[in-house]
Design a binder for these strands. Sequence first.
DNA 1: CGACAGCTTATTGTATACAAATAGGCAAGG
DNA 2: CCTTGCCTATTTGTATACAATAAGCTGTCG
Lengths: 219, 219
Amino acid sequence: MSRASEHAYTVIRGMILAGELPPGTQLSEEALAVHCAVSRTPVRDALRRLESDLLIRRSESQRSFVADWSDDDIEDAFELRSMLEAQAARRAATRITPAQLEALRRHNRLIGEAISGSKADIPNFLDHNRAFHEIILAAAGSTRLASLLTRLIEQPVVWRTAQNYDHENLQRSHREHEELIAAFARHDPAWAASIMTGHIRRAYHAYLDAYTAQRTAAE
Amino acid sequence: MSRASEHAYTVIRGMILAGELPPGTQLSEEALAVHCAVSRTPVRDALRRLESDLLIRRSESQRSFVADWSDDDIEDAFELRSMLEAQAARRAATRITPAQLEALRRHNRLIGEAISGSKADIPNFLDHNRAFHEIILAAAGSTRLASLLTRLIEQPVVWRTAQNYDHENLQRSHREHEELIAAFARHDPAWAASIMTGHIRRAYHAYLDAYTAQRTAAE
DNA sequence: CGACAGCTTATTGTATACAAATAGGCAAGG
DNA sequence: CCTTGCCTATTTGTATACAATAAGCTGTCG
């Protein structure tokens, strides 16, 4: 995407993920255009993309609202993500190149460093974690799978999950990555897929714990 | 989508599916706008949608081309579709309502009628087949799953598969639908999912047979 | 003959004006 | 007080003009 359009997408998406635009908020193309200092045309492009990301829903009269995520939606997203990431791992196991394996090792080493200190470096963790999963997706070599998965990852809730990871969960995540690397090194699709399924499902439960704790605290 | 935008989408999509625009063809917004008798704005919307449907790919300089489908792509699409449709069936098994079950029975009865004559009524078959699968997707009750699956169904190759079904395959498809209905009636997720997996995978092999036969004939 | 620079043309990106549709408020009537 | 219809204001859809960028072409030079 080109300058204005991409900018609008990034800005609006950022505002939604940061919670500045709470679920249910109506989005006016005009207002967003002013806020992003571009015209309505690129804003419309951005809104269409966000709609297909399921970050925005549209009323029957085509008005845009920030999507709200029910508990079922969240469970649903994690369930699909675990299926698709497992499939990616399965395919990657037989196709991964030595260079990609090495890159996985490198990112996981850096993840290890990011979480080893007394205070974990979450942004760094997220960065290398994303890179790690992207390499697997690339190794899977399926355009379609990649296209479907990018619609599921980095959605608001998924994105915030790691923010709430405790030290224990970060360490576990790191160890699961190690095991994934082992499965890839042996080119064992079933092993890789099962580790990945567990990896995502554990993330879901970690999210649930953090979220319900948060909700209970709010009462 | 509103009138012009939807119209452009339907027309362009139709041309791609019908093969009037062969894979690799460059699409000019201007030319399509003239052809659809609308302005470039709704054409641009349509192209964006088609791109996310993977019917169109864009060069790094943002020019649009009709996507070409390698054998691997096709296998990939069927593989993902079988996974996701199986998941839909799994979910639907425990959620389907009596009214939806009845609707499935009705559509499959009509499928039976469409293929019973000496010459099968393929458009009718396709119509009720689509309705059948849509009911299952609705019963699954997952916005995200629906959103992902609609990107995989009715892609060029998938769409043409049924055109090449012989009588034997049409009958089998009809019988598999019967079995799916039975699994839904018993609310058995594992059963429903496994039938669905087989249903889609058989469709893939039917496609392969028809396609390789066609290719061999062309030599 | 090939390669490259510069120009020309084709194509997409963005802004803006106007048209169409819709929601929300307000007044009149039951 | 609620309902209903209309009117106005807001919002989105479409068309068009112009800007920016990339592709293709041509003529020149090595």
